[in-house]
Write a protein that binds this DNA or RNA. Structure first.
Lengths: 147, 147
DNA sequence: AGTGAAAGTCATACTCT
DNA sequence: AGAGTATGACTTTCACT
């Protein structure tokens, strides 16, 4: 992981469909050398993949919320993430230090769907929940790609 | 935005570097028709772009935290996002309903960097902060791409 | 690790339907 | 809106350094 690798990663974070030809010109390396480095970055897991970034509202997911979750029985074995994995509305699941055990980020279309989701979270994971609704998103998913 | 568009979006969320040729085969459309649809999805803002997904730890960002933020002077004009935009450690900034005004997601390398960042957040935005440290990430960034 | 070249594949623009 | 086609560009592999 040298400066060239960091440069490649930064470029691909900014434009995931950039061609290896352009990438080579950008960083001053031959197409095949860039190709080889990208492959190794993928093999090492530095680059986890490439994805399209979608406007959630365009998919009818206008409501984002954070849900903090705490097991009702603190003595029970903690398999909360496994119990929530099938709920596709749950985009992120973080295990956290603090009063609550997990923070979830969820996206739904309507308040009614949020209500239904909260019920499913509580029964699936046997947890109590505390919900914080997102009003707007000044910025999101900014990726630091280099130092 | 019909089922074909949703199918295209789902495929590109799963693999942002998929060729239009493969995409066409996958959804049963010619390469040029797929190309045309993807262009329109980009123009309409449904597809915001394409990016590489990077392992934060590979970039030396092993510590993730949520920081809830509340203005010290509730009467002051609220330009918190603008004041935080230059802090590259702040990956997400959500305006939320609740006791606090904003939730930030930040990534840093060490506890010392988190401490320094908190100081910069408080002085830059004139806010008090409440920090929740992420211990592990069972899953993250799962994208619902279709219904 | 990087270069350069050769082969196959793909993107892109155009025309026609 | 989609299909088919042609051309230039790109990816990918390989031999060489």
């Amino acid at each position: 992981m040298d400066d060239i690798d960091r440069h490649i990663v930064a470029a691909l974070v900014a434009d995931g469909r950039m061609s290896y030809t352009d990438l080579g010109k950008l960083i001053g390396l031959s197409t095949s050398a860039v190709h080889q480095r990208v492959q190794k970055l993928e093999e090492r897991g530095v680059l986890r993949g490439f994805r399209a970034v979608v406007d959630p509202e365009a998919l009818g997911l206008a409501l984002t919320a954070f849900i903090s979750v705490k097991p009702i029985d603190p003595a029970a074995p903690d398999d909360v993430p496994d119990r929530l994995r099938d709920l596709i509305e749950v985009e992120d699941c973080y295990s956290v230090a603090g009063d609550e055990n997990y923070i979830l980020k969820v996206r739904v279309g309507t308040a009614g769907e949020l209500e239904s989701l909260l019920g499913r979270i509580r029964t699936a994971a046997e947890v109590s929940t505390r919900t914080t609704v997102v009003l707007s998103t000044p910025f999101e998913d900014r990726m630091r790609s280099a130092h």
